[in-house]
Design a protein around this nucleic acid. Structure first.
Lengths: 346, 346
DNA sequence: AGCATCTCCCAAACCGGTTTAGCGACCGGT
DNA sequence: ACCGGTCGCTAAACCGGTTTGGGAGATGCT
């Protein structure tokens, strides 16, 4: 019938011991007899006592939470398949450790840094995830200055004191290029993500290198922004060229789908006259027409590993970088042999 | 050069006042001379002092955070345009109040209730958002029992002590039906969301009522699950009927896009032989071919209003329900007049 | 001058845990 | 019988704020 929730003092009194004993018993620390420990825990359960997270946070100077600051332009937020899946993976491991996830969504980079500052200043979190690594990412130094432990998704291009979860997009892109080359394509373009993202650059490099490895010169590359509108724009640009590509590798599925639509509106058959590949392998990719050849990634798996790595780091067990399995190509109906062209038919 | 961050005691000492005075000054409470207040604040700024969120949380028994528990099957997480946008809207108002958002993503309903229990038991949050209302939603009673303030998105079908942010999907669906009827459709089917969601049921009712209002009998309705796979399945089902519909209203864009693909694979022209409408108006909707007629919603706007409502509630200013503007139909290329059929041509 | 009132501030208690210092009981060894 | 060491526990300090009770000094009123 008690209105207010029981405190450690209530448990101590009921068990006939001191607060300290209850604390020791709860945390499984030595120095309390097994018999006593059991009794204390029994009383605690009977009273329905749960240690106050707030009090514990104050006295241990820990937040028991990790943070994620996400900078996304509003129009991309809804379309991004990565971030919700990543979070789900994170949650899976946080939940079993009674840790919480504090999320901040911001729309500009300036706000993003403020977000980290606030998380740090408030002591809301014990560590953070660093996503969407950028070229010469200033956030690394910021987090160092804030003394905020972090785990990066991908390997930064600047010196970083933080463990990284290494995800390699390149094999997937390379596989896509090889797949297209094997089909006979000689003119493979790329619609990339923004230049300043490391993963955008990595996918672009992979595309370029794979083509060179095949003895071909890379087709045109158009940097874009991961949005459907951007993908459509880039596609128009490529198809307007004097010598348009016979295949386009897009840096994500959304741009690829928009690109397919553009091709179609221009009267081009996909894959008959233009092959298209995406990246992410979203659920929709398999259910559009033609079904989209894409590169499957595992954001949820990355989230889980990143969370575990971060919790270890926060506990003082800074581990080494973790390598994740490479992305895999999933071949569907949006890729096929190119049409015969003046270049190829004598 | 101090390693550890300054505390209120440091500020008090430096300003030559007591801790209490600093606290009063900071919180703008009466009882401290204007001159003194300015001096204290100056010293605080000079020392770079920020009140410890943890200490404040303990002494005021407030978390200065709100929570969101999201139950989604993994395969839907990436495709759902609603939740990231909603969160972005929430953040916009939380940020300006120095509140944080604690997120929990779970995959089963059982886990969802545990999620709320944990948030409450840990005192991690002062209130929560209740999304995806279900028929006879048990979470209402749970939150009441947990004494956790909440704001619901939509009006529950059970007695609820919580303020609601009222979003009405029905006008959008009704507009879609009217649009199709005006085009000449007489046989309009619906691919719905899961039956147990209130908004799924609402969209279904709206579809049904709008058809009746037009003097037509509702075509078949297939409940589905908001996934691309589900949308494809439902579409096959509808097109396999002896008397297939000439138009299908889908409960979200993803199912509509998958449905369009199915129609196409079966050799049906959209919109020539089958008209299709979606719901959500995702960014991609405008960039597929044919561009998808859809119903535009404003999840980010809802998030902002829901956050403000929740913060007010937590502060003891439980307000009335808030009505949001209705969803609007956006007509694009996926809808057109139906082909002449035996029914219609004498 | 005397007294009530008001303003401004301080000291101390409090929130609910964790952690340290230390004390008595018990143990084995000599 | 005495001594050093371990075990099991308690009391109290501590984390860093907020809040309450009350005291000193200035002011107003008669």
């Amino acid at each position: 019938m008690s209105q207010r929730r029981p405190t450690i003092t209530d448990v101590a009194r009921a068990a006939g011991v001191s607060k300290g004993a209850v604390s020791f018993a709860l945390n499984g620390r030595p120095g309390v007899a097994e018999e006593t420990r059991r009794r204390i825990l029994a009383v605690a359960k009977e009273l329905g006592w749960t240690p106050s997270h707030r009090a514990r946070a104050l006295s241990t100077s820990r937040a028991f939470a990790v943070g994620l600051v996400l900078a996304r332009p509003p129009e991309l937020l809804g379309a991004d398949p990565f971030f919700p899946a990543f979070i789900a993976g994170v949650e899976r491991v946080l939940a079993e450790q009674s840790q919480a996830l504090v999320l901040q969504v911001v729309t500009s980079q300036r706000a993003e840094e403020d977000g980290y500052r606030r998380l740090a200043a408030d002591g809301r979190v014990d560590g953070v995830f660093l996503l969407d690594l950028r070229v010469a990412d200033p956030r690394i130094a910021l987090l160092e200055e804030l003394r905020l432990p972090a785990v990066t998704l991908g390997r930064p291009d600047v010196a970083s004191p933080f463990p990284a979860v290494l995800v390699d997009d390149r094999p997937g892109i390379a596989a896509a290029v090889r797949h297209l080359v094997e089909l006979g394509h000689r003119h493979v373009a790329h619609v990339a993500g923004p230049d300043h993202f490391l993963h955008g650059a990595a996918r672009r490099d992979a595309w370029e290198n794979a083509l060179r490895d095949a003895g071909l010169s890379p087709g045109p590359c158009v940097p874009s922004d991961f949005s459907a509108a951007g993908g459509a724009r880039a596609t128009h640009h490529l198809l307007d060229l004097a010598d348009p590509p016979s295949a386009i590798i897009y840096a994500n599925d959304v741009m690829a789908m928009a690109g397919m639509a553009v091709a179609r509106e221009r009267g081009l058959d996909v894959p008959g006259q233009l092959s298209v590949t995406g990246f992410d392998d979203t659920e929709l990719a398999a259910h559009i027409s033609p079904a989209l050849t894409s590169v499957r990634t595992d954001p949820s798996g990355w989230g889980g590993v990143a969370a575990r790595t971060l919790l270890d780091l926060v506990d003082g067990n800074g581990g080494p970088d973790v390598e994740m399995p490479p992305a895999q190509l999933v071949v569907r109906a949006s890729t096929a042999a190119p049409p015969p062209t003046p270049h190829q038919s004598p």
